[in-house]
Amino acid sequence: AGHPATNPLAYAVGATDSTGVIADFSSRGPGREDAVRPDITAPGVGILSSVPGSDWGMSDGTSMAAPHVAGAVALAWSAVPNLRRDLATTRELLDRTAHDVNDLQCGGTPADNNVYGEGRLDAYDLVTQASAAQLGGVVVHAKLNGTVLSGAKITLTSALVTRTARTEARGTVQLGRVPAGEYTLTASFFARRTVRQSITVSTSGTTNLTVDLSEPAPWQAIQGRVTDPAGKPVVGARLALAGETFPAFVTDADGHYTGMLPEADYDLLVEYGRWLAPKTVALSVDGPQTVDVALAAKADRHGYQAGTATAQWVDGGSVLALTGVTPRAGPSTCRSR
């Protein structure tokens, strides 16, 4: 996948033909940091469109497919005004109503892969489910020892929805509108005990919640080893907590690292640079942890990877004296006039 489709904020659209089969020209994923791309597919072969000269003609391309998705979103927002500009819920509805296509030739899962994404667009089902969805708002206020807490990570999850955001300067975060139902709310802040609670979201207004993150979290020992594709230790690899300012761990001459972390769930970003690709590992600290990480080699767009190889000394043979060499004349002197 190329730019701008690799941007994590973009909703990328692949193209299918009139039979629903992926077009040859439609780029496959993955995208940046192995994200699944495209997000969805839509008709993009033999599409009647405007052409220069105030005329009409048939065109092919993902530029034909993307407007189908934009049009479907416009229909849904027209049918459900409360959904307008709510990008998170709109993405969830697009993903949920797309028809899955099992194609694993470029990786992924039958329900979300690097050829069809979440599947084929279904504009009718999108509008139908958007119209039937009973949406309610969720606002969370975080506090620490009675004062507002900015930067707290708030996650709302259910079988269909996952929303994650951080509280702003006033200690508040708006998670937008979500389908009414039961959810698990998780609130976390570095070195504070994570708070989890079940909440019910209704369609009658906005659910307002206050979470208290005053209780300190216990610290636990963490250790592990970072290796390259050959199983050899990686010296100087950095292991940082994504989204946190806590100092990174650094591997020693044996590829080992040790340290302490407060109990919580983290994304551990492991980086070395040079020829090894970065890797993010989900880490749940609820006791002493040993986390070993094997880094993969970077690959270019053609699939070539760097690696290590054992080289042998090759004897160049006998040293020969130089003969028949004519000395060079010295530099000439030039005058300008």
Rank of each mutant, 00 (worst) to 15 (best):
L87I: 12
L87T: 11
T89M: 15
T90E: 08
L93C: 12
L94Y: 15
L94K: 12
L94T: 14
L94C: 10
L94F: 15
D95W: 06
T97V: 14
A98Y: 00
H99W: 02
L104S: 02
L104N: 01
Q105K: 13
Q105D: 10
G107V: 01
G107N: 04
G108T: 08
T109H: 04
P110N: 00
N113G: 05
N113Y: 06
N114R: 01
V115R: 02
V115C: 00
V115T: 04
G119D: 05
R120T: 07
R120A: 07
A123N: 00
Y124F: 08
D125H: 05
L126P: 00
V127D: 05
V127Q: 01
V127T: 04
T128M: 01
T128C: 02
Q129H: 07
Q134S: 05
Q134F: 02
L135C: 11
G137H: 04
V138H: 05
H141R: 09
L144C: 12
N145E: 08
G146N: 14
G146A: 10
S150G: 11
S150M: 11
A152C: 12
K153E: 14
S158V: 09
A159P: 07
V161P: 00
A165W: 11
A165G: 05
R166C: 07
T167F: 05
G171M: 10
T172I: 10
V173H: 14
V173A: 15
V173G: 15
L175D: 10
G176M: 10
V178F: 03
P179E: 06
G181N: 07
Y183E: 04
T184V: 13
T184F: 07
L185E: 13
L185V: 08
A187Y: 11
S188V: 01
S188Y: 05
F189Y: 15
F189T: 07
A191G: 08
A191Q: 13
A191C: 09
A191R: 06
R192D: 04
R192C: 04
R192I: 03
R193Y: 09
V195H: 08
R196V: 01
S198T: 09
S198A: 09
I199Q: 00
T200E: 13
T200R: 14
V201T: 12
T203G: 15
